[in-house]
């Protein structure tokens, strides 16, 4: 393959340090979009990923919401799965062993109806080998109790993070909802409460209706929008959170290719999660990792970390200062 003359010979360094968590590359699969890894066996080698975030786990198995649970919208997908999952015990005995054999950090997304359940999950997972970190889900829009309720008020969000922090020594990621007025305030609150990392965003509250049958298209009536349609919202949220906290931030929302991922790095995300794109192209994450590498080579950068958070918000008109004088003269 032809190379530009200024392209360095060795492949660029994609590794990132997320607080206590070191990843060989910054691309993870988002919770709920990759099952427990086995579902995509044969399509995308999980060992090539920065990390796998598994489907949200609750203390007890959950059946999930009645169908219809999905509706496709332009460049988007609204879901109301309702956190269907096998429960903690089944996860540990039946799902985790497959992932533990793979050389990939496993991040367990946890979800509780009440504060105590989050703490209980954390303390029980603390004793389980083969887990790299926990991701606290305080942002699911599709359940009646818990979920997003905890994530929309700074004090409540902080209380969940503190309860989990007191129950485990594992690195903690807190996943935020965009369905709030000021996401930065929630971010500050969970950082103070002890989260090591923040991930954002979960899905955007949304709705679709059928004008002929005059019914909602989801049995749950409302759901959460994901996919490319939400990328600009996700980027703005990531940018705001990065401005407000010192801890590392993981950008999530509508990332389909490497160029989308670079946008999140530019505004300061240290890593990204890829969700809906997995459904469209099971190899999306691997393509994104390769694409980030090529982008850095073309830009003549040897390390991804040198690009992160380098957004230049200054005025770009080269004669700006001089022009100010013209304004004064006018």
């Amino acid at each position: 393959m032809a190379k530009d003359s200024n392209v360095p010979d060795s492949p660029p360094d994609l590794s990132v340090q997320l607080g206590p968590l070191r990843l060989k590359n910054p691309v993870m699969v988002a919770s709920g979009t990759f099952g427990y890894g086995e579902e995509y066996a044969g399509f995308a080698d999980p060992e090539k990923l920065g990390a796998i975030v598994v489907k949200g786990i609750s203390l007890h198995p959950r059946a999930g919401n009645p169908p219809p649970r999905l509706v496709e919208t332009p460049a988007g997908l609204i879901n109301a799965i309702g956190l269907e999952n096998v429960g903690l015990q089944n996860f540990i005995s039946r799902k985790l062993p497959y992932l533990r054999d793979k050389k990939v950090p496993v991040i367990v997304n946890i979800f509780g109806n009440v504060l105590e359940e989050y703490a209980d999950l954390a303390s029980r997972l603390d004793e389980v080998p083969g887990i790299a970190a926990l991701e606290i889900n305080i942002s699911c829009p599709n359940v009646k109790q818990g979920g997003m309720v905890f994530g929309t008020e700074p004090a409540m969000a902080a209380s969940v993070v503190k309860a989990v922090r007191d129950s485990t020594t594992l690195p903690l990621i807190t996943k935020l909802t965009p369905n709030v007025s000021r996401i930065g305030e929630i971010a500050k609150a969970v950082e103070e409460a002890g989260t090591d990392i923040i991930s954002c965003i979960n899905t955007v509250a949304a709705m679709a209706v059928d004008i002929f049958s005059r019914r909602p298209k989801l049995a749950n009536i409302v759901g959460g929008l994901s996919g490319p349609a939400i990328k600009p919202i996700a980027l703005r949220c990531t940018y705001e959170v990065v401005q407000q906290v010192k801890c590392p931030v993981i950008g999530i929302g509508g990332i389909m290719d490497a160029l989308d991922a670079m946008e999140f790095f530019l505004v300061g995300a240290k890593a990204v999660q890829v969700g809906t794109a997995n459904f469209v192209r099971p190899t999306a994450t691997l393509d994104i990792i390769g694409g980030i590498e090529r982008f850095l080579q073309v830009e003549g950068l040897s390390r991804l970390e040198d690009y992160i958070g380098t957004l230049d918000t200054r005025c770009v008109f080269p004669f700006a200062e001089e022009a100010c004088e013209l304004t004064d003269l006018g």
Binding site: G32, T33, F34, G35, E39, Y40, K55, G64, P67, P68, R69, L70, V71, E72, L77, N79, I81, E84, T276, N278, F279, P282
Partner: peptide, 12 residues
């Protein structure tokens, strides 16, 4: 209605 087809999204 189906998103992934492989048992990951649990939508169907």
């Amino acid at each position: 209605l189906m998103a992934c087809g492989v048992g990951a999204c649990l939508g169907c």
